[in-house]
């Protein structure tokens, strides 16, 4: 039996919204420690790794490990019916073929209950081991989203060049070019506005703008995003949850 109660429905809403355009369905792996997902988009260019640790929940129990195959579009529709501030409880029996979803209004005496049919998903799993990191950038997630949107008007690719004291985002397209430079900044009054760059080796990588557009749908999950880059390797884009994370691994582009 799985039972997890979110203090606010908005958290699961944001998680599902951040994932549903990359992958249509995925397995939620539930253990006593929490819920995790690994899902790859159809082109196998973008991988999503989600961990919702037990401490994220107001209440959590999972007696036996269970895997719940979920259609994210369907889950999004049902979750959309609840108010952001509602308690949201998900539950499933062992060997269940449906996920029970309950919203409790915190003010009104109102309880809404839904069942989502579960799917049998035979998905590719990729072996993501620990990765070396040459450069790490942490910046406000809204700033990163704006950079990706602004650069996308120019090109299908976004080049990220990291040196000791700056990160350069560059797009070269048919209509022209764009450059945005960010530098480390410590904002004591507004720590969420701080920018940090740590570097072992300079980085010059290009990524598909289309995939970055999917990644920045996670912006509302966290005020900050951490980008880990390594030469000739997938980039890691991490949005922290209150306890856990939503991570995207994006394969870089290469010169023909």
């Amino acid at each position: 039996m799985l039972e997890g109660k979110f203090e606010e429905a908005s958290l699961l809403k944001k998680i599902v919204e951040a994932m549903k355009d990359c992958v249509s369905s995925c397995n939620f792996n539930c253990t006593e420690n929490g819920i995790s997902v690994q899902a790859v988009d159809n082109s196998r260019v973008l991988l999503i790794s989600l961990l919702i640790e037990k401490d994220t929940f107001e209440e959590y129990r999972c007696d036996r490990n269970i895997t719940l195959g979920v259609g994210l579009g369907s889950l999004s529709k049902i979750i959309g019916n609840g108010a952001n501030s509602d308690y949201l409880t998900i539950s499933a029996d062992d060997d269940a073929d449906k996920l029970n979803i309950i919203f409790e209004d915190k003010v009104k005496d109102k309880i809404s209950e839904y069942n989502l049919k579960l799917l049998d998903i035979d998905a590719d799993l990729l072996d993501v081991g620990p990765m070396d990191t040459d450069a790490t950038i942490t910046l406000p997630s809204a700033d990163f989203a704006k950079i990706c949107k602004d650069m996308k008007v120019l090109s299908e690719s976004l080049q990220i060049i990291v040196t000791k004291d700056s990160a350069l985002f560059q797009s070269v397209g048919d209509i022209g070019t764009g450059n945005i430079v960010i530098r480390p900044k410590t904002d004591i009054d507004h720590p969420e506005e701080s920018v940090t760059i740590s570097l072992d080796k300079p980085i010059d990588l290009s990524f598909g703008s289309k995939y970055l557009s999917d990644i920045i749908k996670a912006t509302s999950l966290s005020q900050k995003v951490t980008i880990k880059l390594t030469d000739q390797s997938p980039g890691v884009f991490e949005y922290k949850l209150p306890s856990g994370y939503l991570r995207f691994y994006l394969a870089p582009k290469f010169d023909e």
């Binding site: 790859v40 082109s43 196998r44 260019v45 973008l46 991988l47 590719d124 799993l125 990729l126 072996d127 993501v128 081991g129 690719s157 290009s206 598909g208 390797s233 997938p234 691994y249 394969a251 870089p252 582009k253 290469f254 010169d255 023909e256």
Partner: peptide, 14 residues
């Protein structure tokens, strides 16, 4: 031009 790599050369299928 640039081509998009897949994740498979890096991670491989389990």
């Amino acid at each position: 031009g640039e081509q998009q790599w897949s994740l498979l050369p890096f991670f491989g299928l389990l």
